[in-house]
Simulated assay, not measured.
Amino acid sequence: MPHPVIALVLSMTTSTMGAAPAPELSVRYERPDSPRAEQAKELLKDSGALKTRIRLPKPVKVVARDCDEPSASWDGDERRITICYSLVDKVRRTMTGIAETEEADARTAKARTEGALAVLFHHQLGHALSAMNGLDGGHAQADQFAALTLAADAPEHVVRAAEARHLLAGHAGIDHLSGLAESATFACLLYGSDPAKNARIAQGGWVPAERAPSCTGEYERVKSAIGAMAVKVRT
């Protein structure tokens, strides 16, 4: 049975991740229970990672909250994405540790952390889009959606998102960001969306050099397989 056509309609108002969220998306930040969770909440809010211009087939709730485990998840029955403060904190601490090892500055660590949070959200958005369009491709398909929505929604943040996932690929327990093969495939799709603009992805080695020439084809096949993208510019 052929897959239904999936239209991801993008209302473009600005070119920043701080653009107003889609009207179908509501975001709620629950009260944190600790100073560390409060810091994670403020980091998540300031990053703008939970805002998107992607129009969704049905309303979706996004809830940031305290959880027992550091995780992010999609609940199809409630049409709810949950982002745990403990996961945000884990990403922040891991990125800070990497920056200290590399002797990178705080601004670099902050940019990488924001890129990682964008990937986390768009991965869950991918689960939502997959489910609401009658597909069930698991994490691999959610990653494919995430690459498409990131490239369309925030192309200026694609490079830092690929870098962040590459850096976290070998760190176990970072929900949906771990895995070397998964990171390389994600980077390939992002690079293939615009090889000229995203050349740093290939230059940084975040996608294997021998694979880079095929990434445009990989991106086009994924885009064709899971639906056409209609772009609407708001005047």
Rank of each mutant, 00 (worst) to 15 (best):
P59G: 06
L87T: 06
V62D: 05
E102I: 02
V62W: 03
D68H: 07
A109L: 04
D77M: 12
A111S: 14
T96V: 14
T113H: 02
A40E: 06
S73Q: 09
L56H: 06
T52K: 00
L87I: 10
D66I: 01
R107T: 10
P57I: 09
R65Y: 10
A106M: 14
K61C: 06
D66W: 04
V63W: 11
V88A: 02
S71V: 10
C67M: 10
V88W: 05
L56N: 07
D77T: 12
I98H: 02
S86D: 13
R80W: 05
R93W: 13
T82D: 08
T101H: 14
K90S: 14
L43H: 01
R79L: 06
P70K: 01
I83N: 04
A64C: 09
T101V: 13
V60E: 10
R79Y: 06
A72S: 04
Q39K: 15
V62A: 04
T82V: 14
L50C: 06
A118L: 09
P57T: 09
Q39D: 10
L87Y: 04
K41Y: 10
S86Y: 13
V60K: 11
A72V: 01
T96C: 06
V63M: 08
R65V: 13
D66Q: 09
G48S: 01
T94P: 09
M95W: 03
A116P: 06
A40F: 00
D75C: 03
W74G: 03
A106C: 08
D105Y: 00
E69D: 15
V63Y: 11
A99D: 03
K41I: 14
D46L: 13
K51M: 12
V60N: 10
G48D: 01
P59I: 04
S86T: 14
G48V: 03
D75E: 07
G115I: 00
D68E: 09
S86L: 12
C84W: 04
T96Q: 15
T82Y: 12
G97R: 09
G48R: 00
G115P: 03
V63T: 14
D46A: 14
K45E: 08
A118P: 00
T108E: 15
E42I: 14
I98N: 01
E78W: 07
E103T: 10
S71D: 15
I54K: 08
G76T: 06
E78R: 15
P70G: 03
E100C: 05
R65L: 14
L43S: 04
G97E: 11
D75W: 02
V60L: 12
E103M: 10
K41W: 12
T113S: 03
W74R: 02
R112C: 06
L43G: 03
K58P: 06
V62S: 05
V91T: 03
R65C: 11
Q39A: 15
A104C: 02
P59Q: 08
G97P: 05
R112D: 11
E114V: 11
T101P: 08
R65H: 13
E103C: 12
R53Y: 04
K90Y: 05
D105H: 02
R107W: 07
R92S: 12
D77N: 13
I54H: 02
T82N: 06
Y85G: 05
D77K: 15
G48C: 05
D66K: 07
L44D: 02
E69P: 12
A72Q: 02
E100S: 07
R53K: 07
V62R: 02
E78G: 14
D75A: 05
K45D: 08
I81D: 00
D68S: 09
Q39N: 12
R55P: 05
A118V: 08
G48Y: 01
C84M: 05
